[in-house]
Design a protein around this nucleic acid. Structure first.
Lengths: 222, 222
DNA sequence: GCAAAAGTGTTATCCCTACACCCATGA
DNA sequence: TCATGGGTGTAGGGATAACACTTTTGC
């Protein structure tokens, strides 16, 4: 069975750059390609759009099929369509970026991809297609958003300490922040509340544990 | 002649929201559709991607063919792909927004569109497809960018007065600005220079005429 | 001379930044 | 008792915001 058109049509794919935080590092989810082109190379999870499927649904479905990751914050990034970006045929890729809290990063690789794994953002393998450019753009977008939105809470587990939260900001912005100023600022946003519990985490004073007041809500600040 | 594929392929289009300023109003470029669907309705200029054409090139080409407008600042906005957004077939639209200085807005309608015209942004006709949503998103993006980039200079003619420039900011931000503070701020950016000339513009003191130092350059500020 | 827009400085406030020491715990 | 990260306040500087009158022109 084939599908016929009066004019040539490009293929449309979605690709997703999924970020999380592990070991005090920003990590990215990649899959190893099982088939040509770039068989054996690492690539962003993604794949072809079903003809009746919404774009974001496609991104979520491919992610679930290839890595087992679901139920995350996802946002459209940019659409890449250089005529030569895929050697098979003309392919337009609608790309997304997504954030997963560090307590929901377990992978269940599916059949489409031989393997799926997290990589530190500063130590990525060679990537298929133009995926390195997609990742760079996603990283820039994410860093910019930390400056004016609460998107960063999407990377946090359900509860966390202020020091943990601060280290996330420091990793994304690539700079150290003053502890007192950070706490004054973040608490002044009025988006966090104490759980009442404390975390014992070594031979020092236990830290207060906080949660986000409206975990799903992303607001613009400043 | 037909084109065959093993799996169904969506069509890909580009659509462009072109803004300019005329009569102290933000104006948008629309074309009247000559053919079904939505024949006779107004729509954003745009059309189908050629199979070997870059996305941005497609946006520029369609704009030129339909309206005669060329050589403008253009930037990708968002990709719309709701499965039912076009009654003919599945269509993914990669949308752009563009800015034209008010001294280069003359239109030369082409054969694809029965007509092309500028409309005040707050007084638009009914629009084909989901183009109203595209326009709203473009307007929001543009207003946000005025806060942290010099993109707005792309809307200005080669020379202008500070009052004219201020009114552009006021229109986009939908708020009045203090004249002294605005001048202090905009001149402090060090992106404008006096031409030395003055503009007589009625029965009042003539205004100094300025130009942008690097018209092509868009910088982040603040 | 009068109406209309151009042009011009100062002050108060707020926000951001810099900065140092005590606290609670485990070993 | 000592090492470790948790927790806390204040003061100075810079940017922002509020605010009113004089100048130049056309009629």
């Amino acid at each position: 069975m084939t599908y016929q058109y009066a004019y040539p049509h490009p293929a449309v794919t979605t690709d997703v750059a999924v970020f999380t935080l592990q070991n005090q590092q920003l990590q990215l989810l990649l899959v190893r390609r099982a088939r040509a082109p770039y068989a054996g190379s690492w690539a962003l999870p993604g794949g072809f759009l079903d003809i009746r499927e919404d774009l974001e649904a496609c991104a979520r479905r491919e992610l679930l099929e290839e890595t087992g990751v679901s139920d995350l914050y996802i946002e459209q990034l940019y659409t890449f369509g250089h005529p030569e970006r895929d050697p098979r045929e003309r392919v337009i890729s609608v790309t997304y970026y997504a954030l997963v809290p560090s307590d929901r990063t377990r992978l269940h690789p599916g059949s489409d991809a031989a393997d799926a794994a997290w990589f530190a953002i500063d130590d990525l393998p060679d990537l298929a297609f133009d995926h390195a450019a997609i990742i760079e753009l996603a990283r820039e977008r994410l860093a910019a958003k930390t400056l004016y939105s609460t998107i960063i809470f999407q990377l946090m587990p359900e509860t966390f300490t202020l020091s943990e939260l601060q280290s996330v900001y420091e990793i994304l912005r690539r700079e150290q922040l003053d502890k007192r100023n950070f706490r004054k600022w973040i608490l002044g946003l009025d988006r966090l509340e104490e759980t009442g519990a404390k975390r014992r985490n070594g031979n020092h004073r236990p830290a207060k544990i906080y949660r986000v007041k409206n975990p799903g809500l992303i607001e613009y600040i400043r």
